[in-house]
Amino acid sequence: MTTEIVNLPVPRLVWRKRLRRSPAATLGAAALILLLLLAAFAPWLAPYDPNLQHIEIRLAPPSHAHWLGTDGFGRDLAARVIYGTRPTLLLVSLVLLFTVPFGLTVGMVAGLGGGWAERILMRLTDMVLALPSLVLALAMVAVLGPGLFNGALALALTAWPAYARLARAETQLLRRSDYLAAARMHGIYGVRLVFGHVLPMCLPTAVVRAALDMGGMILAIAGLGFLGMGVPPPTAEWGAMVAEGGKVIFDQWWVAAAPGGAIVLACLAFNLLGDGLRDWLDPRHD
C-alpha cells in the first residue's frame, strides 16, 4: 500500500506542467502578482508622493521626469496609478469577504435542507439576481455616503447570489451521496457537516467563479469611482482619476489614458486567470 502512495506524482511538477499548458492563466497570475507587489510596495516603487502638488507643472505631458505626465494639480500620474492599486484591491477583497461566505452558506443550507428552506432561499437568490446591481450600489452609496466600507457593502449586496446558486448545485449532487451518509453515521451533523464536509466540495468552483467575477468587480468599482461615489479624494483611485482626466480629454489625453490603462490591465489579469482556472478545474466546460 505505501509504495503506491510514494509513486504518486509530486504535486509541484503537476503545477508546472499545467502552467506550461495554459499560457493565458500564467500571464494572468503573473500580472496579478505584479499588482499585489505594486500595492504592497507602493511607497518604495512610486517615483513621487502621489498627493504632492506642483501647480507650476500641472498637466505636463509624459516625460523623463514624469513617465506618465502629471494631472490637473501637478501630481505625478505614475505614482498615482501605482498607489491606485491599493483601494482597488482592498475593495475587491472586501467584496469577496462579504459575498463568498454568505453566498456559499445560503446555497449549502438550501441544497442540504431542501423543502421550504430551499424554496425560500432560492427565491430570494433569484430575486436579487433580477435587480440592476450597479444602479442599486450607486443608490446605496449615494444615500449612505461614499467610502471604502459602504462601497464594498453596496457591491456585495447584489454579488452573492452567484455563489449561492453554485453551492446549491454542488450540494444537491452531494445530498444523497455515500460520502455524506458516512459522515452522518459518524454522528456529524449541522454546522460541522456543512462546513467540514460540504464546503470543501464547493470551494473549487467558487474559486473559479470568484476569479471570473473579479474583472467585472474591478469595472464596477472603477465605475463607482468615476461617478464620484468611490473612495473620497485626494486618495488616488483609478475610476476617479479617469473622471478627472475626462475634463481635459481633448487637450491632455494622458491624464485619463493612464489610469484607464491600469484598469484594463488589472481586469485582463483577473479575466485571464479566471479563464485559465476554469479550464484546469472544470474540463467539461469548452
Partner: peptide, 22 residues
C-alpha cells in the same frame, strides 16, 4: 470578448470622443 469584458465603458467612451470627434 476578453477585451470587451476588461474595458471600462466610461474610459472607452472618452477615448472614442477624443479620436472620432475631436
Amino acid at each position: 470578448a476578453l477585451f470587451a469584458y476588461s474595458l471600462p465603458v466610461f474610459w472607452l467612451g472618452l477615448l472614442a470622443l477624443l479620436l472620432f470627434y475631436a
